[in-house]
Design a protein around this nucleic acid. Structure first.
Lengths: 134, 134
DNA sequence: TCAATAATTTGGAAAATTTCCAAACAAAAA
DNA sequence: TTTTTGTTTGGAAATTTTCCAAATTATTGA
């Protein structure tokens, strides 16, 4: 994996190292933990740290990170909330329908054969399994 | 598959055959088409048909249908919109990241081996593959 | 270094979607 | 019937996200 040094990450992904981005990058990539985060969670952490960053900027930042592949937007979980995953490697999720929590499943825990071809005109950019549990 | 007769469906799923439910059941199960619908889509169709049903009732109805297994809430697609799938059989989806559209993939088109065990205390209620395309 | 240019941030308003609520209504049971 | 239970209604409220125009910050290149 590439370095997790926040400044380097921004640099190598063509993002200006502005204050909000550095703060968020530090929070998300400063250690090796993978996280499932929402804009609200990030904003709350910043607030706790006494850092003043507009909520709109948090959204901008997370979307920018996702655009350049630093984060992945998860298509699972509670409707109405965008969840970003710091783990952009292929992997899967348990989704607990009661708690609305996501848990990672390593990619190699499952074998999938015959991944269907995408409709023509489209190409596959990724795939994942969502296992719903209660 | 069980009969798709709307009244019978309501009956066998323990739902009172009220006016809004019959209207929605007709719209969704009156033919053999599978559909991915939102509350807004249903409300619009009702409106077009000159049927007066409160939006809150459309939501209630769709949630009730999902609760009894007549519909499945899809965990994919555009954030912020609840999509209900009339196809409650196991199957998968292509998700087009550009258009936000979902396309069905029949369950037997893919072989998945070693479905991981759920975390203890939980049990698997379903699973699906989401293939993201562009 | 300094201006010019381009990108980003801000805060607040607006949009979009869903849920909540209490009153009215309809269906089922007694 | 009457009672009880479940459902619908419309509007307000809640939640989450996006939009916007102005201010700020970073970068470029004289």
């Amino acid at each position: 994996m590439a370095s997790r040094d926040p400044l380097t990450l921004l640099e190598t992904h063509g993002l200006r190292a502005t204050r909000p981005r550095v703060l968020v990058a530090n929070m998300l990539f400063g250690d090796k933990e993978n996280r499932h985060v929402t804009a609200e969670w990030v904003a709350d952490r910043l607030e706790e740290a006494g850092e003043r960053v507009a909520l709109a900027t948090v959204y901008n930042t997370l979307h920018h990170f996702a655009d350049v592949g630093l984060l992945r937007q998860i298509h699972a979980g509670d409707r109405g909330v965008i969840i970003f995953d710091t783990n952009t490697e292929p992997h899967h999720h348990f989704f607990d329908e009661k708690t609305k929590m996501l848990t990672d499943i390593p990619a190699d825990a499952v074998q999938v054969e015959n991944l269907p071809e995408p409709p023509k005109g489209a190409k596959t950019v990724g795939w994942e399994l969502i296992i719903r549990v209660r």
